Computed example of a mutant assay.
Amino acid sequence: MDKATLYTLRWSAMQIARLSADPKVDALALSQIEILSQLLEEAVPEEFSPPEPVRPNLQPEAQVTEKKRYPLDERKLWYPEAVVRTDLRRPAKGAYPKGYPQGAIVHFTAGQYQKGLEDATAAIASSPYFFCCIGTDGKLVQANPLNQWGYHAGESAWSIEGVRRNGVSNFLVGIEITNPGRLVLHQGKYYTYWDTDFKQPIDAKKVRIIAENRDNILAGAYLPYTQAQETALIEFLLWAKANHPSVFNFDYVLGHDEAAGPKGIGRWRKNDPGGALSMTMTEFRQLLKDTFHQRYG
């Protein structure tokens, strides 16, 4: 069935939903709108989107360190270990075509990073693009439920289920990690890109040097993610898979430098996570698969 026909059918269902006073007819029309939107690979029009699920007021006191085994296929929309505040949400662009992300994009914020949860919360509050963010203390802040998507990948491309997607934000959730980004070398010392007066060099012992391009990683100097950040990232992604295993796919856990880099769009538009992550994204995907198999069988 071509897209013109699908749009016509969805428009008809929308008209029925607007005009009908019968709850049963309304429910049937809304179901048809959802199905047709999925076939069109578009979000349900805002007028007919379901209300946001109940927002829990979750504020865990400690970062995620325990390796938990969650029940399979619960299909929750809020990560149980996330910091979720009732006053922090971002405007969503729509709902994921399958009602849940099919994978994730690993980012760094290229911003302030030293104050743990405070910086993660501030990164979300100050940006229209961040829905999930992990601070240096390992706390993950979640601003929106996992059926909603917002722009985070920008110009990007990847093959998802055999179809090349130009723009992956509405398929893959963005996981931001507080980190200064690729560092600037000046007179033998390393600085954040915003330290234009070169007044606060970063301790060279903490810097990870990538001598040459490797897989997704652009050569250069990076401040590594903290161990707490990597643990939190891994635990979130393992939960995301267990929570909805038929939709979330580790093969679509990508670096921003993949989808918005040579592998995706043919050039380096973005370089995160690059060397901030302790391994390449290819290695990271394998780690997720192996760990999931060990934990869930």
Rank of each mutant, 00 (worst) to 15 (best):
P71V: 05
V54M: 13
G264K: 13
R75W: 10
E118Y: 08
Q63A: 13
R285G: 01
I160K: 01
A204R: 13
I175K: 01
V168W: 04
M1E: 07
E74V: 08
A221N: 06
P273F: 13
V106H: 03
I217D: 01
N57L: 10
A211C: 04
F198W: 09
V84L: 10
A4Y: 13
Y296M: 06
D272G: 11
I217N: 02
P60T: 01
G188Y: 02
M14Q: 15
L146F: 06
I234W: 15
D195P: 00
S31L: 12
L183E: 01
T65H: 11
R69Q: 14
A157Y: 03
L9T: 00
G162P: 04
I217F: 09
Q114G: 02
V163K: 12
I160C: 04
C133K: 13
W268S: 07
L58E: 01
Q59G: 01
G150L: 12
G94C: 02
K3Y: 13
I33E: 02
L117P: 00
L58G: 01
S169C: 05
L238H: 11
T280W: 14
Y7K: 14
T5M: 12
F236E: 07
Y70W: 15
K24M: 10
G181W: 01
G167N: 06
P145S: 07
L6E: 04
A125V: 03
A104C: 09
Y225L: 10
A120I: 08
A92P: 09
Q227P: 00
W268T: 05
S37A: 12
D2I: 07
G150T: 12
L19N: 10
W11C: 05
K206L: 15
V253E: 00
V83P: 02
L6G: 04
I217M: 14
P180V: 00
V247L: 10
F131M: 13
Y296N: 02
D26N: 13
D215L: 08
K199F: 01
K241F: 04
T65Y: 10
D272P: 07
V184K: 00
K289G: 03
P50C: 03
L9N: 08
N170H: 15
M1F: 15
M279D: 01
D251Q: 15
A221Y: 10
A219V: 06
I124C: 07
R55E: 04
L6P: 04
E161Q: 12
F130I: 15
Q102S: 14
I160H: 01
V184P: 00
P245Y: 09
I35A: 09
D119E: 11
T121C: 07
C132Y: 11
D87C: 04
A228Y: 03
A29R: 02
Q229A: 02
D290P: 02
N170G: 03
S159Q: 10
Q114W: 13
K241E: 00
L237F: 14
A27F: 05
S12C: 11
T109C: 08
D26P: 01
P145G: 04
E155S: 11
A242W: 02
V184T: 00
A95L: 14
H186I: 00
K93H: 14
T192C: 12
S156I: 05
W149H: 10
D215N: 11
T136L: 07
L233S: 08
W268D: 07
A157Q: 14
P51G: 05
C132P: 04
F108I: 07
T65S: 08
P101M: 08
G188A: 04
V173M: 09
K205C: 03
Y100N: 06
